[in-house]
Design a protein around this nucleic acid. Structure first.
Length: 291
DNA sequence: ATCCAGGATAGCG
DNA sequence: CGCTATCATGGA
């Protein structure tokens, strides 16, 4: 970190963090977090209960000096991308996806908002997940001022546990409403301890998360990867399944979903979560061109 | 209009 | 165990 500072209208004095193999926009728009808003050359959003402004130009990331440590942690700027990518299997599909997605980081998201957000993600498009996240934040979150802007934190489980069903339904969660309420209550009552999951082996942590209604293997894996830093975990969604079918099972017409799941968490290695996210990002933006 | 979306689950055989 | 219908809602 350097002492270079730079003033930005309304966002106070910003500090420069040198970064490499990092792309802010890719990271914030890769289907991990859904609440960041583009403002001019930068982004505003909440990291937990703190309002943050972020702006990147080339190999410099700007943020408020007092928030540097938090930002570095959240954006996982400490990940050694060269070492991580060196562990990838060397096939052409992943190589292409890696070239396209380089700079994307797997963030360290607060567990509760990650869990709740992915509970709302089932059978929804990214744009709708985003709309739901913003609606829940605006309806029940804490308002945070940032210069002339107002943004909202994700409401704590104790808050959501006590909202009226119809008020949450108004956020367009559809059939997922009752699952979010149930999750908020389990955590509010201490039946599930999200902090304690940090200390559990991944398989045990996954079982624990799956006790929550609406959480199955895929959503549990998303939370393990995006909130608990289990970088070996590979969530398999419809996009990844398509990408894997097309690139690794092209001959076999009827590869079972189960086989694909088994394959994915053995083939991609100790940082399979990153490989998965690169493939997801590439495949989602480029359709089926990659074969 | 019809199909699909970063799935999970109860209910079948 | 494996398979299927179903769950709200909006976008393509």
């Amino acid at each position: 970190m350097t002492s270079v500072t730079s003033p930005r209208r309304g966002f106070g004095t910003l500090t420069s963090i040198p970064v490499r193999a990092f792309d802010l926009e890719k990271t914030l728009h890769s289907g991990q977090v859904f609440h960041w808003q583009k403002i001019g050359a930068g982004y505003i959003g909440a990291i937990d209960e703190t309002a943050v402004y972020l702006e990147q130009s080339d190999r410099i990331l700007l943020c408020a000096k007092s928030q540097c440590d938090r930002v570095i942690q959240y954006l996982a700027l400490d990940h050694q991308m060269d070492s991580i990518e060196a562990t990838f299997p060397r096939d052409s599909a992943l190589r292409e996806a890696t070239k396209f997605s380089r700079g994307l980081r797997i963030v360290r998201q607060p567990p509760w908002e990650c869990l709740a957000t992915f509970l709302t993600s089932a059978l929804k498009q990214v744009s709708q997940i985003r709309a739901i996240s913003l609606a829940i934040r605006q309806s029940f979150g804490r308002s945070l001022r940032l210069g002339e802007h107002v943004l909202f934190s994700y409401p704590r489980p104790e808050i959501l546990a006590n909202v009226r069903l119809e008020d949450l339904t108004a956020c367009k969660l559809g059939f997922r409403t009752k699952n979010v309420l149930a999750a908020a209550r389990m955590i509010g009552e201490g039946d599930i301890n999200l902090d304690a999951i940090n200390g559990l082996p991944t398989a045990v942590a996954r079982d624990e998360l799956c006790r929550i209604p609406g959480v199955g293997p895929k959503i549990a894996n998303c939370v393990l990867l995006f909130a608990y830093g289990r970088l070996e975990v590979v969530p398999v969604d419809v996009w990844i399944e398509r990408a894997l079918r097309a690139n690794y099972f092209s001959g076999t017409t009827k590869a079972l979903t189960n086989e694909i799941r088994t394959f994915s968490n053995e083939y991609f290695g100790p940082f399979g979560g990153y490989a998965q996210q690169y493939l997801f990002h590439y495949w989602r933006l480029n359709g089926r061109k990659l074969v």
